[in-house]
Amino acid sequence: MFSKTRTTESGPQFNDIPETTTPPKPSETATSAAPPIPSPAPKKAKPAASVLSSDITITGNVRSSGDIQIEGNIEGDVRAQTLIVGETATVKGEVIADEVITHGRVIGRLRGLKIRLSSSARVEGDIIHKAIAIESGAQFEGSVQRHEDPVGGANNSSSQRSQSSNLSSVPSPAPAKAVG
């Protein structure tokens, strides 16, 4: 590949001058090169939960397409993808989320695909769920109903009332009380 050449004359020789290359024309590369492969779209990282700290009091409804962690007080309905009610939090209103984790106090209806009441939870209201877990020590006063789509039917509460009134011959279950 490399060889040592003997130089008998001083000065540059014709063979010592590097060859210059011309860049290919754009029309030549377009026909001979394969089309570029698109890179896969980067996955969107899940944003962090919005935290409503313990010094916040909100009067009105709260809605998020993401996750919410509540440590303060809310007087109004809350809707989110995942909702965490912290130990110091109080929510007075309806809670609707795919996943609800309650460590604090909720006064109102809970609707969710997965609902978990931790040992420090204090809930006064009905729970409509697909899956539920209640830890020992949680306090709960209200009724529990299992639905396949508890979140999807949240806007049709009036139609659900009319359906439940048609079932007057079926006795309703007694409200459950869990006191720890």
Rank of each mutant, 00 (worst) to 15 (best):
P35I: 13
V179I: 15
T59A: 10
I70V: 12
S159I: 12
A89P: 05
E148W: 00
V144N: 09
E135M: 03
P24K: 06
A133G: 05
A178H: 14
Q163S: 00
L52E: 05
G180M: 07
K43E: 11
E9A: 07
A133C: 05
L113A: 04
L113R: 00
E75V: 14
S3H: 15
I37Q: 08
L83R: 10
V151G: 11
K46M: 07
A176T: 12
G152Y: 03
V151H: 05
S172A: 11
E148R: 09
K43F: 08
L110V: 06
V62F: 10
I68T: 05
K44Q: 14
V91D: 02
A48C: 08
G112I: 05
G93V: 03
V170S: 12
S50R: 13
T82H: 07
S164K: 10
P12W: 10
S54L: 04
Q81L: 15
T7S: 11
I68H: 07
T5Q: 13
A48W: 11
S136C: 10
S50N: 13
P150W: 01
S172E: 03
G125R: 06
I127N: 02
E75A: 14
D16W: 09
S158N: 03
V144T: 10
P35K: 12
E9K: 07
P175D: 14
A33N: 06
F14V: 08
R6K: 15
S143G: 12
S172M: 02
G66N: 12
Q160L: 05
L167Q: 04
K4A: 15
P26E: 09
S136L: 11
I134Q: 05
V62Q: 10
G153Y: 05
P173H: 12
E87F: 03
T5H: 09
A30Q: 13
R161G: 06
P175Y: 15
R122K: 07
T82P: 02
T21I: 15
A49I: 11
S158M: 04
T82G: 01
P23D: 15
S136M: 13
I37H: 10
T59P: 02
R63T: 14
D67V: 03
S53I: 08
T82Q: 09
I132V: 05
R63V: 10
E19N: 12
G11L: 08
R6P: 11
P173L: 14
N155F: 01
S64M: 12
V62P: 07
S159E: 14
R63H: 13
D98M: 01
L113E: 04
P38M: 15
S10E: 13
P175R: 13
A154V: 06
D98I: 01
N155G: 01
D55I: 06
S162K: 09
P173S: 15
N155E: 03
